[in-house]
Design a protein around this nucleic acid. Structure first.
Lengths: 124, 124
DNA sequence: TTAGGAACCTACTTTAGGGTAAGTACTTGT
DNA sequence: ACAAGTACTTACCCTAAAGTAGGTTCCTAA
């Protein structure tokens, strides 16, 4: 629910970029520090909330849930609350979420081919 | 040169994400509001600074130069100062910058296939 | 009965990125 | 003489995303 102030130049520029540039559009969906990592977790199948949390120890619960919600709103992941005895929640990739796999693979391939990935540290 | 405070949790998390996740690594390079747009401009060949500026009217000079510098530092674009009579500067994609083309195309393809791109507005 | 896990929510603070506005050094056209 | 273009730089401000630190409800096992 992170409040936004839609009448800022920043926001306007962002919206126009997203509207005009498909790459920006994708960035908007899977960008950020954590979304790729979260998505990756779910690429190996449905995961429980607590499983994801455990798999990414440094993420805070606030941010994790926030991102999971955005991913749901964007239709990339599906949430299913299981009505078993200790009730728990499962997250998994939707159809379009799974369709991102080749995109993510293309990125990963580039990362490995170029710029000695794993070596030298990032600049910013 | 936007000063960074390297001893923040934020920065640490970011660095570990970049080091561990190839997708985050790529995001770090081509993420942000403007980098995709700038890169796109150069995909059609070398461009002068002022040409890029004119092509993206809403970007400020500060941000444009800032991004061009980051892209240079990351080895994605090459800067060439031409020593002609009114001297000007040319920017073009490097080898690894050009290697991003399939990645960007994959993203664009996904954007068009899924989520009725161009329709409904982005959530955030 | 109290501790703990699961899946959240809420209020408050920090910071990096982006925006505003201005100035520089050089040259060319009028 | 002066405006205008080219490629920048610098100082300052604002905001959205991320981090901190709690609380909540429900259930179960010891």
């Amino acid at each position: 629910m992170t409040a936004i102030k839609p009448s800022s130049t920043r926001q306007e520029n962002r919206q126009t970029a997203i509207a005009a540039c498909p790459v920006s559009f994708v960035m908007d969906k899977i960008g950020g520090n954590w979304k790729p990592v979260i998505l990756f977790q779910m690429m190996s199948g449905a995961k429980r909330y607590s499983e994801i949390k455990k798999a990414i120890p440094t993420i805070t619960e606030k941010v994790l849930i926030q991102h999971l919600k955005q991913l749901q709103d964007d239709g990339l992941v599906l949430r299913k609350a299981l009505d078993v005895v200790p009730p728990h929640v499962e997250y998994r990739l939707s159809k379009s979420g799974q369709a991102l796999t080749p995109v993510l693979n293309a990125m990963a391939a580039w990362a490995f081919e170029h710029r000695e990935f794993g070596g030298r540290k990032a600049s910013r």
